[in-house]
Design a protein around this nucleic acid. Structure first.
Length: 729
DNA sequence: ACTTAACGGGAATAA
DNA sequence: CCCGTTAAGT
């Protein structure tokens, strides 16, 4: 091939090269996991800029996370050796739309300072709606109404077009209308609005559409399989001008249908752009063949997919390890101890990731990592920007930017507690209602009237004075100075640092926020608040830290680690109990497992627990291994070391305790107990210990052992635990 | 009238 | 374990 020696193409394989050097028309790159799609995307952009005479300001590249966008820009700058990517638009859908709408705010009846309402804010607005409509919030849960509204927006359905089949739908429509009014009144957009309003503007306003078509002549999209209808319409409207739409997709990694992502966008693309060129990337550069075989065996069971064959030149590899633990604690201990073992063989902490279905599963893992003194970082769970102390500070910033935002008003009016409770706020609300304005203006009016005399009302007066000062300072000080000012004015430190450890850590968070702001010293208040609203959990992931990563399977998309543990592979968790009734949702759960497995470069561990505690360990319930595990071919599996010496146990099926444990009690006489009280034992991981008690639990011998070295008391199953009796002295 | 402590009920994934 | 709600205390 003539291009073979081009510096941009030398590092690529033939399939990648074809994709990178495609003509400027529409292109669809189907890329399996680890096939170098990020590389293709970056090289493609570099190729367009350097070989196809594309001007960077005409390029729009959409990534799935801000982190990916940053990395891509960085790589491009390095490849091209300058800052020619500066004028390029590179970011997530939400960030890009937020910026467009900032510019076009007026058309939508918003101020250019409109704020993005996060999940909590949305809930506040919807609760208000439900209250105003006089609905029973048990029957019409604000959360569930929000879900309905959200899916409607993802499909660009306005209230008028919302299909009403039941009375509940009728309520949804009314709530949808009031909810939108509520958002507008407060000068806010929610996440879904960012996409929907952008799509609608592009659809309805021809002049505007032509402007953006001219600006974004070349559109590139990563993770196309996870776009929803609104996003597709945005892409289509832009691309119908110059017909240069370059998308990378893998339907097997579609894991966001619950938030409106629609794989059929791939079909739509083929229909709307029949001249599309398609490319297939099948060579995997990430994982060993064993891991790929395992992952493909799992995904192959899904119906209606175009099958790919992923291959790698890394033949062989370590077998996939399937481990059954007694409960979530021992599962965590197994993962941590195995990690420790790997660390001794040359892996770094940052080479290891533990993935799970639900955030709640991180707790047991965290405890174990702490106990064994291994640093970890947790992605998601309580996101930094949704901690109370952070939201409070941000609330003040939002409020000073837009005092007419009632949601922010309610958030900050009594923080720290200054004696302004529901009753007092009610008076303000009444005044606001009377004047038909915001709470803040209602407050100002009350203050002017001079009728505020009681303690609570005097607190209101001083609060109003404070806010007034801030709105003046708002345009004069940097964001960092504003934060300092607020913290000082409300004496936030003494409120947050209440002397407890938690208080200290809360204050650390505030200082961390302060540091983030200081770094971006020139950013405006609006832009800062926008950025903050749109950071994703994984965006927080700093690569410099050497620590084990704990994250959900959803968060793991696009990442890779030398060692991956997938925890909690049980019925009810993966597939999640809420999805088992729907075949399509189970298929998505399967893809989730597939995504997790294909994150692993060298070693993959699949673990599940025999019983798992809910609600903070109080009571635990037996669980069954995930149905997906059945599809793992025996060849890729290995029994964990702790069971090998115990002789032949073929594959997972033998250990399906869930079916054994409960009912088959009296089938056969029980053999004698292997351990008895006082017996000294040696455990492969826990070391030496002494048996406190041994008894039958069902047909299993359950041994309670106390170990030394701070490990403490463990309950172990005699036939499962890697534990032997020691000779008595 | 507001604040704090005790209580009961409840869990999926996320920009 | 975290949330929102309620009851008692300031």
């Amino acid at each position: 091939m003539e291009y073979e020696n081009h510096p941009l193409l030398r590092v690529l394989n033939a399939q990648q090269r074809a994709a990178v050097t495609a003509s400027l028309g529409p292109a669809l790159v189907i890329a399996g996991p680890g096939s170098g799609k990020t590389r293709v995307l970056t090289h493609r952009i570099a190729w367009m800029l350097s070989e196809l005479d594309v001007a960077p300001w005409h390029v729009l590249a959409v990534t799935f996370t801000n982190k990916a966008a940053r990395e891509m820009r960085h790589r491009l700058d390095r490849m091209l050796g300058d800052t020619s990517t500066r004028p390029m638009t590179l970011g997530t859908f939400h960030a890009t739309c937020a910026r467009i709408l900032r510019r076009e705010a007026e058309v939508l009846g918003l101020s250019p300072n409109y704020l993005i309402f996060d999940t909590d804010d949305q809930l506040t607005v919807m609760k208000q709606v439900v209250a105003d409509m006089g609905l029973d919030d048990k029957r019409y849960r604000p959360r569930s109404l929000l879900n309905a509204v959200s899916s409607a927006k993802n499909e660009l359905l306005t209230p008028e077009h919302y299909p009403v089949r039941t009375y509940y739908d009728e309520i949804v429509v009314r709530a949808y209308v009031s909810y939108q009014e509520g958002l507008r009144k407060n000068d806010g957009l929610d996440f879904d609005d960012l996409l929907m309003e952008t799509a609608r503007l592009l659809q309805t306003d021809e002049a505007l559409r032509d402007r953006y078509r001219d600006r974004f002549r070349y559109v590139l999209v990563d993770e196309f399989q996870d776009t929803n209808i609104a996003q597709y319409v945005i892409l289509k409207q832009l691309a119908l001008g110059h017909r240069s739409l370059y998308v990378v997709a893998d339907e097997d990694q579609s894991i966001y249908s619950w938030r409106g992502a629609d794989c059929r966008n791939i079909t739509r693309l083929r229909e709307d752009f029949p001249e599309v060129h398609e490319f297939l990337l099948e060579e995997n550069y990430r994982s060993t063949q064993v891991i790929l075989d395992g992952a493909q065996a799992i995904i192959a069971q899904n119906p209606d997919r175009t099958s790919k064959y992923l291959f790698t030149t890394k033949s062989g590899g370590y077998p996939v390890v399937l481990h059954e633990a007694y409960d979530e604690q021992e599962e965590a201990d197994y993962i941590v101890l195995e990690t420790q073992r790997l660390l001794r063989t040359g892996y770094k902490q940052s080479d290891v990731a533990v993935m799970y279905r639900t955030n709640a599963q991180s707790r047991a893992l965290e405890e174990s990592f702490i106990r064994h003194n291994i640093p970890y970082r947790l992605i998601g769970a309580t996101r930094f920007y949704s901690r109370k102390e952070i939201k409070d500070v941000l609330g003040f910033l939002r409020f000073m930017l837009n005092p007419d935002d009632d949601v922010s008003f309610m958030r900050v009016v009594n923080v720290p507690p200054r004696g302004i409770g529901a009753g007092t706020v009610g008076k303000v609300a009444a005044e606001a209602q009377r004047l038909g304005t915001s709470l803040y203006r209602g407050l100002v009016s009350l203050v002017r009237s001079g009728t505020l005399r009681s303690r609570a009302e005097r607190a209101l007066t001083s609060f109003a004075a404070l806010v007034h000062q801030w709105t003046v300072l708002r345009d004069e000080l940097s964001v960092a100075r504003l934060i300092d000012r607020v913290l000082a004015d409300i004496n936030f430190e003494s409120y947050v640092r209440d002397g407890s450890d938690k208080g200290e850590s809360r204050w650390e968070n505030v200082m961390a926020l302060r540091a983030v702001v200081a770094e971006a010293s020139t950013v405006s208040l609006v832009d800062f608040l926008t950025d903050v609203a749109l950071v994703a959990d994984v965006d927080e992931l700093a690569d410099e830290v050497d620590a084990v990563t704990l994250l959900t399977l959803h968060g793991a998309k696009g990442l890779e680690y030398r060692v991956v543990f997938l925890a909690g592979l049980e019925e009810g968790l993966l597939p999640h109990s809420r999805s088992v009734d729907s075949p399509s949702e189970v298929a998505e759960e399967r893809r989730l497992l597939y995504v997790g497995m294909t994150r692993a470069e060298e070693r993959l561990y699949l673990t599940y627990a025999f019983r798992r505690g809910w609600r903070g360990y109080r009571g635990s319930e037996p669980s069954a291994p995930s149905r997906f595990l059945k599809d793992l071919p025996a060849e890729v599996l290995k029994q964990p070391e702790d069971r090998q010496h115990r002789g032949a146990k073929p594959s997972w099926s033998v250990t399906s305790w869930g079916t054994q444990s409960r009912d088959q009690r009296t089938a056969e006489p029980l053999p004698e107990l292997r351990f008895k009280t006082g017996q000294r034992v040696k455990h492969t991981y826990y070391g030496e210990g002494m048996v406190l008690e041994s008894e039958y639990e069902g047909r299993q011998e359950m041994v309670t052992v106390v170990f030394g070295n701070g490990i403490g008391v463990k309950k172990l199953l005699s036939h499962m635990a890697p534990m032997e009796p020691l000779p008595q002295h």
